[in-house]
Every structure is written in C-alpha cells, then in structure tokens.
C-alpha cells in the first residue's frame, strides 16, 4: 500500500484537555510526559504529535487500549473534537479551516461515521434511521427511501424496515448504523470501535460484512479498535497508539513480525501468525521441483492445507502476472506459524 495515494493526512496534531491547553502545549513539546502533565498541571494529554497518512480506498486501523486517545483521534477527522493545534487534510483540504457550513457539508456528504454504541435514533424505525443522513443532505423522500432500502438489504436487514432499534439485537442495531453510514455515499467511513460492543461471533459476522462490502466499494475506512486480532484481520495499515502517541505504524505483517518495542511484542505474541503472514514474506528462491501455484499474497494458513496435499510438499509462489517468483515448503509454513524468531529472514519486507 505504500505507493497508493493518501486520502487523509494528519499533521502534528496535539490535543490537550484542561483549562489552558495552549499554555501546556509548550511544555508538551518540551518533553513533559502525560503523567507529569496530569499530576503537576492538571491537564490531560489526549493526543501528542500525531502524524499519519491514511491510504485512499484502504482500511486504516488505529489500535490502542482504552485511554490511548484513539477515539479522540477519529473525532478529529470530522472535527467533532477541536484540536489544540495541528492539521487534518482530506483530499487536499484542511478540515480544521472549514467554516461551519462547509464542515456540515463535509460531514453529511464526505465522511460518515459508525459508533461503538450504535447511537441510533430510538424514536425512528430502521428505515427512518437509515435515511437520516440523506434527510440532512436534503434528498427527496422517495429517492432517499429507495437508496436506504438498498443498503438495508445489503447489510441483511430486509424485512426489518419498520422495526424500532429497541426491538433489535445489538448486532442488528449496528447493521442499521452501518447502513445509515453507507447510505450517504460518503467515500470516507469512520468507524469508532464499531464492533467492540458485539458478541465475538456477531463481531466476526460484521467484519465479514464490512470486508465483503469493501471488496466492491473501496471506501477509505478509518477503523478504531482495541482488539489486535480485529485490527490484523481488516487493516491494510495499522497505527498503534499509546498514551496519545503513535508508537508504530505499518502493515499487519510488519506489526506482527517486527514489533517496535516490548509493548507491541506483548500484544502480538499470542496472535495466529498463519492468518497474517503472506507467502511472499517467507518464500525462498525458486527451484525446479513442482507443486501447486499459489499467489504471493496468500496467507500461510490457507496455503498449509494445499501444500500438505502436494506430493512434493511444496508450492510455487506466483506474482500478479503469474510468473513463479519463489517456493515455499511445508517446513517453511510450519516455521512461520510457530512464532519463532524469523526476523532475520524478513529483510525484503
């Protein structure tokens, strides 16, 4: 994803909560830590010097534990929270310099949001909730209902149009939240821990819906989560946040294979690597043995089954053009999944 164009760029963003955030800015820039700021000056450091480039048409995950500032960060993209200082560029426009009208236009046409606790309008039916954004856009009711019906169908809620949110389960409510966000046709989707409040099974379900939709929609998605498993599953890019600072950003493979510090390594050690590492990361130079031809982007876990069945116990790895660029043997696959120290093999990553 490194060469794709940038959709959202956050530059030198600081957010300090308290009575005199501007005065504290110098202290934070001068190296005062979050704890010191809290204890001595009674201000809370929300975000500190955030610089992020989020790829267009990709899924940018921002991961962090509670209190890391991730929800604060996502609210800066549509300016639900004003920063203490910094810039948020979307399509070459600084969101923080928009006047009220432009900002409202931006929110209802270009960036829609899905919330952790759904935030549906309890007095409106599923249909009425889904057309909410379109109503604000000023779309005629008939057209709005037509479009909403399409999205309700796409998230699998057809038949529930006339139900009230209170009558639906959590998973179904969040489908309404997703349909409401998608209906506005905004090309940025902000998802604030959108699936965190759901049961594990339902969560996987919702992740699948999102990934399926993304296959055809190619939205720029900013996804906040505290769950690394979820982050690795849906993220094209992951930024890890701690105490209001980005401590590592990269692809899921980079995060898992090259954790920047012990904090991240601690997170990643229990992860199923087979579901993250791609063949191209572990392949060796091509040899003349035969075997099934597998894509370089295929995950180790998926390849394992196929390689086991191959008589040569190896597979040939092909690039997008179909040329063989390497091979992986059964041993390579097992070694990759078994979480050994394989950093030395990953120079080309």
């Amino acid at each position: 994803m490194s060469d794709s164009e940038t959709k959202i760029e956050i530059k030198q963003l600081f957010k300090i909560f308290g009575d005199h955030p501007e005065d504290m800015l110098e202290k934070v820039r001068g190296g005062v830590s979050k704890d010191e700021l809290n204890d001595q000056y009674n201000h809370v450091l929300g975000l500190s010097d955030i610089n992020l480039k989020m790829p267009a048409k990709g899924v940018q995950v921002v991961m962090g534990l509670s209190g890391s500032g991730k929800s604060t960060l996502i609210r800066h993209i549509n300016r639900l929270i004003e920063p203490t200082t910094g810039e948020v560029w979307v399509d070459g426009e600084n969101v923080l310099e928009m006047d009220e009208k432009t900002l409202r236009y931006f929110r209802c046409n270009r960036a829609s949001m899905v919330f952790q606790r759904f935030a549906l309008l309890p007095h409106r039916t599923v249909m009425e909730n889904t057309i909410y954004g379109l109503e604000i856009q000023g779309m005629a009711e008939k057209d709005a209902e037509k479009r909403a019906a399409y999205w309700i169908e796409r998230v699998g809620l057809a038949g529930y149009e006339e139900n009230f949110p209170g009558q639906l389960s959590g998973g179904m409510q969040q489908r309404v939240g997703l349909a409401r966000a998608l209906a506005t046709d905004a090309d940025i989707l902000l998802m604030d821990e959108a699936f965190s409040a759901l049961d594990p099974l339902i969560r996987t379900d919702m992740q699948n819906i999102l990934l399926d939709l993304q296959q055809e929609l190619y939205k720029t998605i900013v996804f906040i989560t505290h769950d690394l498993e979820e982050a690795l599953r849906i993220g094209d890019q992951i930024a890890i946040l701690r105490d209001g600072q980005v401590i590592q950003q990269g692809t899921p493979q980079q995060i898992v294979l090259k954790p920047k510090d012990d904090y991240i390594a601690d997170f990643t050690k229990d992860i199923n690597r087979g579901r993250v590492i791609q063949l191209k990361t572990i392949m060796k130079a091509p040899n003349d043995k035969s075997g099934p031809e597998l894509s370089a982007e295929m995950l180790v876990e998926d390849a394992a089954q196929l390689v086991t069945e191959s008589p040569s116990s190896q597979a040939r790895v092909t690039n997008d053009a179909g040329d063989v660029v390497g091979v992986v043997g059964i041993n390579d696959l097992i070694r990759a999944m078994a979480r050994p120290d394989i950093e030395s093999r990953l120079e080309e990553l």
Partner: peptide, 15 residues
C-alpha cells in the same frame, strides 16, 4: 437526551 445520539446527529452534519 443521550449525548451519543446527539454526537451522531453532529457527525451526519445536522444543523
């Protein structure tokens, strides 16, 4: 009125 619902209204650009 639930603050989260109000925030959602803001996020969708309601005046």
């Amino acid at each position: 009125v639930d603050k989260e619902v109000l925030e959602a209204a803001d996020a969708f650009g309601a005046s």
